[in-house]
Design a binder for these strands. Structure first.
Lengths: 202, 202
DNA sequence: TGAAGCTCTGAACCATGGTTCACTTCTTTC
DNA sequence: GAAAGAAGTGAACCATGGTTCAGAGCTTCA
């Protein structure tokens, strides 16, 4: 035997792969899926186009990985808030706020995750992503109903309405020009979400 | 002079154009924008691919026309309901019902209008379409607030929430398997919409 | 009927962008 | 240092699908 990957080499490759995913995520957040060509992504990562294929079998596979990482983070964060401390309505309110706040902080990424035109493989991931979001919201709504805090309702539809509403508000810039406007937007959005779930007006 | 389009010829051409738009709409509703190639559309209309360019300068122009026609019909129908007879809350309720019912009746078209991956030109039209929908809903909400039927709120956000919610529910099949399930879905959706606007529970 | 001018056809053309591959460069091991 | 083998390069390759165009077929009108 004359060559065997040393641990350092393995971790260097792993790091290169991570770096590629990170750069690809930035490019996608910046210019959208449709403009994120293999060349653009490779350039951003400082490698040649051909090298991308050392880490992923196809552009679609890279795109799916980028989506999964980013979407996974969001689901995780939202999940922690929604199953955390507080009564169901408090959690719901904080969940909407966190979801929206994070999306506003990285609007490009939020748009890419929620709505931007993308290849079919990413579209399929997106469906799954939305379903997971919906499941999280639906669970809290059900708890609220069970606890008597919310009126009886179809929790799945309320959850779908919440994700749809937040996405719609975030995707099309309604405001959020400055810090005050952003606060107001978040407050109005949260209020609408709570009304939608049937929580008594604060 | 040896040739001049006769009125009959002109209307024949006009009819061919209309037929092309109609067939293209069907193809899009059937297989989505991304699969609706010039060849597929031309085949459906029973003409050669090249003939498409007698009526439209590019595929994008045809796609935009298809979108505008279909979206225009929906906006018109919704508009008639929302500014029709009845108090604001009644109109809002009927508007949501009509919007959703029509989308369920032609789910493929609804998906194409609301969410399906599409080329940039169609994406721009879609933004405009959503804005018009939102404006219609927002106006009714404002009237409801002015009439004291609805609590004070950011009408734009409520309107965005309504369109987002309806779109989300319709795009991802939640049910609507049979006639009864469809009725239930519509009822639940309308209820969620009214709660979202802050209307007292019926 | 014939000339002029149009519509229609569909195969060829071309732009885009993902993918491959011969070659170079770097790592490992002896 | 040299051999073996992997990673990295980037220009060439190729598939897809929108667009063009030379020719065939119609319409109009004298």
């Amino acid at each position: 035997m004359a060559y065997r990957k040393t641990p350092a080499e393995i971790s260097r490759l792993e790091a290169a792969r991570e770096r590629l995913i990170g750069c690809a995520t930035e490019v996608v957040a910046d210019v959208g899926w449709s403009q994120a060509s293999v060349n653009a992504v490779a350039d951003a990562a400082g490698i040649a186009a051909g090298s991308v294929y050392q880490h992923f079998p196809s552009k679609a596979a890279l795109a799916v990985e980028v989506f999964r990482r980013a979407a996974g983070r969001e689901v995780e964060v939202l999940g922690e808030v929604l199953v955390g401390a507080g009564d169901p309505v408090e959690r719901l309110s904080r969940g909407v706020d966190v979801f929206a706040r994070r999306a506003l902080e990285n609007r490009g990424l939020a748009y890419a995750l929620l709505a931007a035109p993308a290849e079919p493989a990413v579209g399929a991931e997106r469906l799954d992503f939305r379903r997971r979001y919906r499941a999280l919201f639906a669970e809290v709504v059900r708890e609220g109903v069970a606890a008597g805090q919310l009126p009886p309702q179809n929790a799945e539809i309320t959850a779908a309405a919440l994700t749809g509403a937040i996405g719609e508000v975030l995707v099309d810039p309604l405001g959020a020009a400055d810090e005050d406007a952003t606060q107001q937007l978040l407050a109005d959005l949260t209020a609408a979400a709570l009304r939608c779930a049937g929580a008594p007006t604060a």
